[in-house]
Design a protein around this nucleic acid. Sequence first.
DNA 1: AAGCCCCAG
DNA 2: CATTCTGGGGCTT
Length: 498
Amino acid sequence: MDEDQVMIPPDCVSSLGHSRTIVHIDADCFYAQVEMLENPELRGKPLGVQQKNIVVTCNYVAREKGVSKLMLVAEARKLCPGLVLVNGEDLARYRVVSDRVTDLLQSRFSSLVERLGLDENFVDVSEMVKARTPTAQVAGHVYGDLVREEEEQGLECHCGCDQRVKIGSQVAQVMREAIREEVGLTTCAGVSFNKMLAKLVGSQHKPNQQTTLFSWQAQKLLSSLPGGVRAIPGIGRQMSDLLKSGGISSLCDLQQAGLDTLTTIFGNRDRASVVQKLAFGVDDTPVKPSGRPKSLGIEDAVKGVNCAQDAEAKIEALSGRLLDLLTAQQDGRLPGTVRLTVRKWDKATKEARRESRQAAMPALPPLHSETFRASSLAKMMPLLKELFAKMVPDKNEFHLTLLGVAFTNFCDRKSGKGSISSFLQPVAKKARLDATGVEASTSHVLLPPEVDRDVFNALPAEMQEEILADWKNRQQTLPSPTKAKKKCTINDYFGKKK
DNA sequence: AAGCCCCAG
DNA sequence: CATTCTGGGGCTT
């Protein structure tokens, strides 16, 4: 196939051009790395992280023996007899490490940090890049490996993005060093002018490496991707099946399909347009700061649950764990809604399908009271039983394969007399005035800048918790003055623009 | 707002 | 029979 001339349809132009600089950071085999971090004896041994009967991920020692993601345990053991397996069904410990990575990026590099799962972050470093000296060399790999030749042929981009991604690659390097030093994880990074391309190019060299894409190499990257249309982030199973039924399976097919064809396939012009743009590497979606989680849930794949009593026992156990998670999260918010999810095996259609029902949460006792867990459970269980009955009527026979409980619709606690706002508000006002942002970085517990450490230490433990929770909230919602300054810590590594 | 579908790792 | 255990967003009602 001839690929020198790829015609880009006129409806596929980007409104942002190459103006942004985006870094995608991806932790290598994340769960396995966290396990090795917590138990260093595992390093050097083939390690798999197990959920139910599946190895969900494994370290690179195991990969050398042929173990891969989402492989059945039996198969993995066969390939790698010495495989060490650890249980990874509870994600709480992974979430703690994941938060450390996101917090580091957000406090030191850019307020625009978007999480994707537990192991990936997009960072929009456009502002930081503007302030850098324009003489940077590329750190790490360059996609395409033809930089010098191509530049000599005059194929480089004249909008300035070549320079920007070079600086971006230096920033990415510093990010990865900081994550390695301060969190203990190796990562990969991709640098480009939009999210999709940053993510795609970052996976070109793994593990513990980084790759930068110049805009004039984007087409080459796209055509080189294996796996047809599925290689595009945002085109999943359903959409690729739809495309295939419309005669489109390769990325080249997709690029050649007209907007009308795609609209017919998807039955939706907006959808079609987004997909068409993605096929040409056009992605104007912003890096959207993730902020605090919008839901908190747990679920458990089950087998042999076929009576209400069994199910309710499981639901109670799950709810207890979920309340523990809520307590641990402790960012001061309480859920407004509970949702119960079941997955049923439908033998008529021979498919598993999920159903859920939700209800308003009853008022809960104070988060840290002794009886919080027990009395919350007591209030929730009747509700959950009702929800369960809506989906699984008593009479019918059923075969459940999964149960899940989730909190959503979080709201901040109402501020009362002894609450956080009455304490912080006046102090915060004073602090805003003389906030210099210089802030010698605290080595241990991070306090809000307006809170004096001695005052803090004298407070009751519960109030300390509230302050820390509130500070965490503010960091994720407001671009605080401190942070705006702190972004520039990268100056330690690079000179400022003259 | 409720519930389903699709996406992601 | 089923890849696990999550979490976000969009569409339809």
